[in-house]
Computed example of a mutant assay.
Amino acid sequence: MRPPPVTAAVRVRRAEVSDLDDLVALEESSFAQDRLSRAQYRKHLDSESALVLVASANHRRFLGTAVVFFRKGTRVARLYSIATQPQAQGKGVGSALIAAAEEAGRHRGCHALRLEVRKDNAVAIRLYERLGYRRIGEYARYYADGADAFRFEKAL
């Protein structure tokens, strides 16, 4: 049985320890390789240099997540990972997560948000470009499976 479509407004908040099972399940269903482990998520939940966001609607329904890293000595934040539940794709969840990541970067004094995306992920590339990201480079064989990546950036 398929879950009902997303109809409520998307809400983004900082992840909590109680979200760990949902975070790990989405990570495992979304990525074949280059996954964050349960221990890594747990570490990032308590880290000053990382922010784990979750998107929900309809009373805590878990729709997606984003992980943002902040490094000391730089004013550039990095969108490390973003994933949405299949039934939530195309419903504004990714855009809401990215907007929250950008706001967190601005709040911390960052002047830009950067990310990497697989060259073959046309849906994500269109989303980033629609949201004002520009391609600033590329990496050959960036991912564990040998896939190439584009690097994008948006001024905050």
Rank of each mutant, 00 (worst) to 15 (best):
A77F: 06
E129D: 05
A77E: 07
V10G: 03
R134T: 12
A88M: 05
R11T: 13
L113P: 04
A8K: 14
E27M: 06
S81F: 01
Y142R: 00
Y41R: 07
H107E: 15
P5H: 05
S56L: 09
R11C: 11
L63K: 03
S56F: 03
K91H: 10
E138D: 09
V76Y: 09
T65P: 00
D22N: 13
E102N: 05
I82Q: 01
V117R: 08
R13H: 06
V24H: 02
A96M: 04
K43A: 13
A88L: 04
A144R: 10
V117T: 12
V52N: 09
Y133P: 04
R106F: 04
F31A: 08
E27Q: 12
Y133V: 02
G146V: 04
K72P: 13
V6W: 03
R134H: 14
R60F: 04
H44T: 00
V17L: 14
L113T: 14
L36D: 04
L79E: 02
A155C: 07
E103F: 01
D145A: 05
F31G: 09
L45Y: 09
R106K: 15
E153A: 15
R118E: 13
Y41W: 06
V123F: 00
V117Y: 06
V67A: 03
D145R: 08
A147E: 14
R42V: 03
E103W: 00
H111M: 08
L79C: 03
V123I: 08
Q40R: 11
V12S: 01
A96S: 14
G90C: 10
H59G: 14
A99G: 04
S18T: 15
V54I: 13
T7E: 15
